[in-house]
Amino acid sequence: MTPAPRTVAVGGDRPYPIAIGPGLLDEGPRLADPLRGRHALLVSDDRVAPLYLERVRRALQAARPDLVIADHVIPAGEASKTLQHFGATLQALAGLGATRDATVLALGGGVVGDLAGFAAACWMRGVDCVQLPTTLLAMVDSSVGGKTAVDLPQGKNLVGAFHPPRAVIADTGVLRTLPPRELRAGLAEVIKYGGIGDPAFFQWLQAQRDALLAGDDAALAQAIARSCEHKAAIVERDPLEKGERALLNLGHTFGHAIETAQGYGAPDNANLNHGEAVAVGMVLAARLSALLGMADTADTDALRDLLLAYGLPVTIPAGLEADALLAHMRLDKKNLAGRLRLVLWRGIGKAEVVPDVDESAVLAVLRGG
């Protein structure tokens, strides 16, 4: 018997539900319920679309025969999160004749979710978006909270908007087709939630490693729900990242610098993907915290050991220069008045935003790998 889906509510000025469970992409009424008009654009990538796009289209059409549905498929990978593909998505909305009550449905991982969400934010100054994440990383992070963006060569997510979705529908059944590397990348973001504010969850992740890496449905659903509950609570209190929400970026300033320095390569090459870069970034943030006297090195070791146990990288890839990484970090959106503003910690579960971080200490950590 299929268990009932879990639901996490995101509150605030624009509340929305997160549904988590297997088989949700086949539930036409659930997919159609957030749609207010008769135009729907399904945005996906060329890896996910062959697996799930027609399935979602059929379910939607069965529930709403009046819907006019079009699709827009982009190449898979971070290299597609560009202004050019953003413009092409807007052209797809124009071709559909999408009106102000149209809905963009983002079927894919974080790249699709960010790109489709940004297009929805800008079409006719804002139409609805429904997130249908197909990767663990997107389920626990990018699909929740309404941060949408595209990249520039100078840095990740520099052009974007806050645009909360109407709903997030996370079908955990699709994780069975997720490559092991992508599953591990998503687990890096799950581990982050334990690191920023939940030591008990951190311990649970230590105990549940085998089940999570094996793709156990119950363990994954629990990890996703716990992560979404943490993110939902923070987003509700700080929807526009004026303060507390920045804590969700533990490891991300370092990680984004690594991704930018790598050049957003194709997903199959040797470059780190987003989750892997965040894993390295979290270790660097923990090491910097210890260097600044904020935390014990034992906490760094515990984080490093857990990430290694999940098969994640913990050191900067060879060939990336410390000075270049620091230059990319200076473009981070959390910085104020040209000063580095980083998420560091005082140990597992005790993250905080630290302003005016000494660049020489950051360089020392970057040079140490």
Rank of each mutant, 00 (worst) to 15 (best):
K81A: 06
A188P: 05
L136A: 02
V365Y: 10
L178S: 12
D13W: 13
C228P: 03
H163K: 11
H163I: 07
A170G: 00
W345R: 04
A277Y: 08
E321Y: 06
D198E: 11
A59R: 02
K192H: 13
V43W: 07
R176E: 14
F118Y: 14
D210G: 02
V168A: 01
G77K: 07
Q154R: 14
L308G: 10
Q61R: 15
G319A: 02
N157T: 01
Y310N: 02
S289W: 11
Q262V: 08
F202I: 05
L60Q: 00
Y16A: 06
Y16I: 05
Q131M: 15
I169Q: 10
L137C: 04
K192G: 10
A322M: 05
D101V: 03
E259W: 10
T177N: 02
A324S: 14
I20K: 06
R38Q: 13
W123K: 02
A364D: 13
R304Q: 14
E321M: 08
A218Q: 15
A121F: 12
D332F: 06
E259C: 05
A32H: 12
F162T: 00
L136P: 04
V357N: 06
L107S: 00
R100P: 00
L53S: 01
A279G: 08
A318M: 09
A270T: 13
L41D: 00
V354F: 13
H274I: 07
K231R: 09
V127I: 15
G215P: 03
R6F: 06
D141W: 12
A327K: 12
G109N: 07
G263V: 03
G23R: 03
I224S: 05
I169K: 09
D171H: 05
K334T: 03
R47E: 14
G21W: 07
L105A: 03
E276H: 07
D46E: 13
K156F: 02
Y310V: 01
R367W: 05
Y16D: 08
R226A: 14
L137F: 04
S360K: 12
L248V: 04
L307A: 07
Q131E: 13
D141T: 05
Q84S: 14
Q208T: 06
T260G: 04
E244K: 07
G275Y: 09
A261K: 02
K242F: 06
E359C: 02
M1N: 12
P3N: 04
N335R: 00
A223C: 01
D332A: 07
L93D: 01
N271H: 15
D216S: 04
A257C: 11
S360R: 14
L175H: 08
A119H: 10
H163G: 11
D198F: 07
K147P: 02
F201K: 13
K333D: 12
A337F: 10
R304K: 09
V144S: 03
R304A: 06
P75V: 02
D238T: 04
D66H: 10
A218F: 09
A207M: 11
L107Y: 00
C129D: 09
D358M: 11
N271M: 13
P199T: 05
A207P: 06
P22I: 07
L53I: 00
L308C: 11
A266F: 13
L212P: 00
C122W: 12
T260F: 04
A40H: 03
A211K: 12
V362G: 03
G173H: 00
R367K: 14
D198M: 03
P179Q: 10
L240D: 13
K242W: 10
R287D: 11
R181A: 11
L178H: 13
S289T: 04
